[in-house]
Design a protein around this nucleic acid. Sequence first.
DNA 1: CGGATCGAC
DNA 2: CTATGTCGATCCG
Length: 868
Amino acid sequence: MDDMKKAANSSCNDGVLLRMGLNDNKAGMQGLDKEKINKIIMDATKGSRFYENELKKDQQVNQRIEKMMQLKEKVTTQQLLKAQLQVDKLVIELERSRNLSSTIVHIDMDAFYAAVEMRDNPELKEKPIAVGSMSMLSTSNYHARRFGVRAAMPGFIAKRLCPHLTIVPLNFEKYSKVSKEVREILAEYDPNFMPMGLDEAYLNITEHLEERLNWPEDRRRFFFNTESTTRIDKDGMNMSAKFNEGEVSSSPVLFEDNTSLMDDGFEQRGLSVENSVVFGTSAEEVVKEIRFRIEQKTQLTASAGIAPNTMLAKMCSDRNKPNGQYRISPERQAVLDFLKDLPIRKVPGIGKVTEKMLKALGIVTCSELYQQRALLSLLFSEVSWRNFLDISLGLGSTHLEKDGERKSMSTERTFSEINTAEDQYNLCRELCRDLAQDLQKEGLKGKTVTLKLKNVNFEVKTRASTVLSSVSTEEEIFAVAKDLLGTEIDSVAPHPLRIRLMGVRVSGFLTEEEKKYQQRSITSFLKSGKEIGFLRLQPEKSNQEYFTKNSEASHRGSFFDQKRAARQLNSENISPNESRGKQLFHDDKSSANFVEERKKVTDLQNSNAREIFTCPVCFEEQSSNNLEELNRHIDECLSGMHVKDTVEISKNDSSRENTPNFLPQFKNEHVDEREKNNTDQLAGTDQSANVSDSSTNNSTEKFGQIIPDKSPRERQPSNLSDIVRNMCMKQCLFPKRISQDNEDHFDKTEQIEGTSSSHFFDTKEDTALVCPVCNSEQKTTNLVSFNRHVDVCLNKGLIQELTEKEDFPTKTYNMENSNRVFSGCLSKGQQCANPSQGTKRSGLTASQSVSKKAKSSNSKHTIEMFFK
DNA sequence: CGGATCGAC
DNA sequence: CTATGTCGATCCG
């Protein structure tokens, strides 16, 4: 967002102080010099918990650097020479595939939030201002920057730097509105432009430039905003809305010394009719036109960069800001000239830490980055050094990829210290509630819940748990999160957990495909009694829900509101008793309530009065509410379908054997030129693999053999083992991989993302089959036998458990969230206790060779293949 | 997979 | 008093 953020940290000496200070200080009547600024910051910082943590982090980075330097010492000349050869081969390839044919533009609004606030409140125009709060600033205007006030700085420190600083609170609605106005303009030049936050965007104007060549002059004519904000129609009519403000003050608000585009010689062009200006057909002219229109429409200025790829364009927009633009002409030499002395820190993706590490190697500029390419290839991961190489050659994306599906969703909050378990659980629930709401908006469900905690010393911890059934509701998320939180509370007991931030994240979303099948998998089956559970309790109340009710009854409104209210009342201290783990309530009143409510639940469960049974196999409601009878019915149902099902599965195995189906699909249609080249060539040697991959990829037919391919509504699970198998397949949790060859392991992410199915029962030599029910390793690798075992196990185990009303064996499937459904059905209120089982995940059995093929056809790093 | 870290806005 | 919130990527164990 903010141009100065990086400058703040660039080319500093080591040390926390300098990191937080700034280096460049624009000359001006007012303002502070670098030294003063750093001193003030230091005084405000020194001794704080925050500072101590910064020091600690600094030490860790230093250790990383030390490790790297030790590695460097071991590098022999021979290794270096060899690496040099390898890398240079790659350089030739990269060079050969350099693509200069696109015209990419990066637009960056100048000090966006601050500029908007100044525009809307003229009183602020002459003053140093910042947008944010006393604890954190989002941006500052250029006036304030002269005092060292910048984004990501806490307001109270900014105030010390610049006592006259006006801090205005964030107003996202307003910024969004302005942002939308800007985007409307951008879309005219590239309908597929890519916004990056509210104040930045990339455009690919290659096509626009071509079309524009044929445009008549009038189509490139724009009027000043006293009349119009956009070009006129052929009839000379205004096409767009007028400024609603009615005020004519169009002068830029941002910089006292600025030169508006209007003063920038547009009138001298001689092309303009009164009050209008005509733009040319070059890329520069297009971008000037865009910036002109933005300014006319919003009274805000933007900076821009023009270059053959996104990386360069972004760096260009930084070059002449504020209110300027810069272009790298599409020639190799122009690119290299631009990079020659450019500090690596200016490169997007190179941050504070990377800068420091590279600096330890004597690398500061991009040309130095290139010179050290061989060494870097030995010291850094492949991904990293290839990225470095791309950077030093000036290579980047020449097209704008649509960003794919969201991968996670989270919410987190900072607050003044919270140290009682009760408060922490309440807060956690509130976060879960908010998150659940957000998830709902996008209709997402995820399998992994991550809890994030920051203690009062600013140390951050995350704890994650992946569950079998995907979660989306407040209760479901909280059920997982509260355990994670409980574990953390326990881990510091008897001391209280003293935190200043808590966050909850959900990730591992189901793909569309998975969503469909999930409906008839055991997960949904077990997940909630509401849907298709074979036992319904009325009213449907889980323990958690009682907890909610309870806490909500005593606290109205948001947790923070209550805290605030409590502080104001300031009468009663919440007793900071030993907050032992999962004991949710500490004060007598709520404890009592909880116990009482809990009792109600068990009472309800014990009185069979309102139970309705639904058979999990045939899905028929049972007339009897007798457990024994239900069990007998289920037995019959299961044994009736058992044999047939086994045969069906075994038949499918053979057809599945060599058709791996976990390969990820191509994420986007467009393939980078150089990737295309390589895949084309690879196709020669690897054709068969590609064909087979793509054919299996979407093969619903094959998929359908495993799970009969009818609409979920049409077909319900035939028996429990079927259900379990479906679940296993979709969740990729099976079978267990015994031999742990750590070398050359494949990318699990890809497999989980992709539609994995066929590898479920794949037989591999290094794979032992482990029964998901009894958890015992099976001697046989024969799938038919194995399936039989699982079926037997299921029938024997599950039904027996049902009948005997004992706890689910510890060594079973992890039921996690499903506990409450099971508890209701198995043993009237008894929970099946296997809390930790679910976090253990089995490895996958996909063959590595296949996995590599997947990469070669899809990955950015295909070039590697050439050197083998 | 889980956890830490980096980087961007 | 008072040092953000959200997201994706990567690396390591």
